[in-house]
Design a protein around this nucleic acid. Sequence first.
DNA 1: TGTCGTTTGTAAAAATCTTTCCACACACTT
DNA 2: AAGTGTGTGGAAAGATTTTTACAAACGACA
Lengths: 289, 289
Amino acid sequence: MSEPKTTVRELIREKYATLTASEKKLANALLENYPAAGIASITVVAQNADVSTPTVARMVGKLGFKGFPQFHQSLLSELQAKVQGPTQRRANWATEAPESHLLNRFSQAITRNLSQTLSNVDHDKFDKAAGCLADTNGRLYIVGGRITRALAEYAFTHFQAIRERVTHMTSSSATWPHYVLDMVKGDTLLMFDIRRYETNLLRLAELAKERGVTVIVVTDQWASPIASIADYTFNCWVEIPSAWDSNVSTMMLLETLIAAVQEENWPRAKDRYERLDEIFEAARLFRKP
Amino acid sequence: MSEPKTTVRELIREKYATLTASEKKLANALLENYPAAGIASITVVAQNADVSTPTVARMVGKLGFKGFPQFHQSLLSELQAKVQGPTQRRANWATEAPESHLLNRFSQAITRNLSQTLSNVDHDKFDKAAGCLADTNGRLYIVGGRITRALAEYAFTHFQAIRERVTHMTSSSATWPHYVLDMVKGDTLLMFDIRRYETNLLRLAELAKERGVTVIVVTDQWASPIASIADYTFNCWVEIPSAWDSNVSTMMLLETLIAAVQEENWPRAKDRYERLDEIFEAARLFRKP
DNA sequence: TGTCGTTTGTAAAAATCTTTCCACACACTT
DNA sequence: AAGTGTGTGGAAAGATTTTTACAAACGACA
């Protein structure tokens, strides 16, 4: 089909900036459950998005439709086109972009990586590792390599929010001895080491291990040498059509670990979150409005 | 759903014998163009089948529906089920862990987020934004918020590897004026702003915009206020069963952007990668084995 | 050919959905 | 602290859709 073919979805995105607060709410509800959320009477659509009928009518107007029925009809045709369309669009992933577009090639690779990563996690070890990360009797050290420094930082930001006694070992290895000096049995060291494995990190792991520290390493599918001495190893699939490696799956694993720790420490973590929010709020008030 | 799972089509076939002449005419029209012919107002359906409205109403009653709206709804659900059909179900990449295990709950949420994010990227805008990020005539500034600082850093590490003239604006907003001072038209500002949106970032965006800088913002599904002044906005779905937001989809989008820029700048980017590797290799040799 | 039962469509009534109007609420300015 | 403007939802008015009522048309059978 060579039509200009603007879908309602595109229309919403296009005008999104010009929408008001509750219109955005509606837009999100629509996009979230598209197009189902839009195919109903205006009253129902409004209710499901938790806005008033006029808001729906107004937004539909803004999108360029003459009235709700027209909008409704438009969604309906889209739905129908989809059904009759040439061999159902591939999965959910396909955006409206052509098959060969980078977005699609990428999403495919990433999907594969996530799937591989997940099916290679031993959930028993996962739980145990989460237990170590949650244990506040010991100190938690976090360290990453050149590229994974960002992940280490992300981990630090979150772990700091949900538990005490967390240390981010900066990536400058010159400072590491200071930290190692204080490591004792019962502490945990969370390491990120993705290929182009770094010798420094291996040395660090060895030193930590000598002191009875529990070592958890998040690495790639080929496994960093650290894996052979670590207590817990997690392999993340990282290949993408590119010169470098993807860290999406690593990020997912990390977030899941954080969530697990949060759950384990719940009442305390919650308390910390709330206090943290309060402090940020207070800090914000220092600034002039 | 309490439906006995019969499609309207089957229902029609089943009762076909008991239908009167003009009802059969209607039934045929319906089956001929199913389900489209049924999805419209009763008047239109009647007209298309060349029968009267009451005939439609009567037949719908015979099929066991309480009224035309119910019949209409039923067809709609069928249509929708067809669209989402096999797609949704297959996304079950469970590990061996039980359904309810955090790993699985998480993977499901994240899958959803990725899918939503992808289907809401406008690939045209994506390409254009990538173009800006690749343009080395202007300088590229990168900045993140409290949580997204890690992403900004990740972005910086990679962009620095594939192009010149990249600046990471540290998250301490006190230093921002220095950077803003040097911003000129043609520069690009890549911002990350996930909810708990930060006023600082908005101000920064405004200042940058005043200077003619192209602003690209990566935000969440609810859209940071920056979105309304930014040149390019990308919405990432971030909700997970947790007290905080996931950045997996954000990471994916970021990586895809990086890959796009890399592709655009290919020969040069490749060269930089190689030289960078050499330098790292050389640095490694300084250390004793 | 007339009567009866059934089927069918017209048209009016009822129900529902959509739009419009207006007042209130909130934020931002003076 | 009052004023202005925008955004929002309640509720009535307007439009459309659905249902119902009823009478004309048709065909079967006596």
